[in-house]
Design a protein around this nucleic acid. Structure first.
Lengths: 148, 148
DNA sequence: TGAATATGAAACAAGTATAGTTACATTTTA
DNA sequence: TAAAATGTAACTATACTTGTTTCATATTCA
């Protein structure tokens, strides 16, 4: 029922690219921040490249940069780039078509599940990478509490 | 991670119980409609029992009935009874805490992911089992198209 | 009392997806 | 040409789901 952690890692990668926008980052340096293997990062970068969210260059001094401004990338863009499957799957094997219930339930569920998923994606679509980075920086410097 | 179809099967089970409310159904008869093994059904019924959505009786002439009226059971109730995990998981292993990005991303993501999940569950909470059954019955008898 | 019917639970196999790792061919730059 | 980087394949370990068999337990009824 759950998605993979690719989505969370992808947001992490893109936030890192945005906060280091002056240089191209290698999969190794990104992996050091995410705390995983560079190949795991490259696999996700492959999806982000295919979606046109980043641009990668080969060779010495190569690496990855954002392909768009951070305020023009939504979390829903990142979600679609990294996850394939429906969040709420139907039956593993088709129900009994000789039963009225078995015949009719899947179209009804499919429609409801699509609405539920759309509501989730709407929240993601309303949040840009730029906002995420801003919230992360606010997290880093918590507001000072006034002494009483 | 693989996705679970427990939620879809659970809705199927409960819709079947509602449309056969005059009798208790055995796991075998339910399995015949879902097109799977009775033990698979009993595993899901165990979760629905624990959540108080159905009531099961042992022995000859035993079986399962709805524990509440269908209009008092929402899809969100069923969702919570059958699925455990968050829909949008964070990193598999904790990011590097020596990196500003690694330190700050998880609380930000966690909050956003909670909002996204809440939006999805709100859609499910607005749909009752009774409505699902009604839509299934409408599916079974499609409206007649007026001849031109 | 005993047979029949049902659940609950344990154990196991098979399939699938993810995460991590190693290895290597390819590309680019200095 | 050497160094540094990517892309990709292959392999392992882990975990979850689905399906299956088996059996103890509970209940009903003849």
């Amino acid at each position: 029922m759950s998605a993979s952690s690719r989505f969370a890692v992808a947001v992490h990668i893109l936030a890192l690219l945005e906060t280091n926008a002056n240089q191209a980052l290698s999969s190794s340096s990104i992996a050091a921040s995410v705390n995983t293997n560079p190949v795991v990062i490259r696999r996700i970068l492959g999806r982000l490249n295919k979606a046109g969210l980043v641009h990668t260059e080969y060779g010495a001094d190569g690496g990855t940069r954002l392909a768009r401004a951070a305020h023009e990338i939504t979390l829903n863009d990142i979600y679609h780039a990294t996850e394939n499957c429906r969040i709420l799957p139907l039956h593993a094997s088709s129900p009994n078509q000789d039963c009225r219930c078995g015949r009719t339930i899947q179209p009804v569920l499919s429609s409801i599940f699509s609405s539920a998923e759309a509501a989730m994606q709407q929240v993601l679509a309303n949040k840009s990478l730029a906002e995420v980075v801003r919230e992360m920086q606010a997290q880093a410097k918590p507001p000072v509490v006034q002494p009483s």
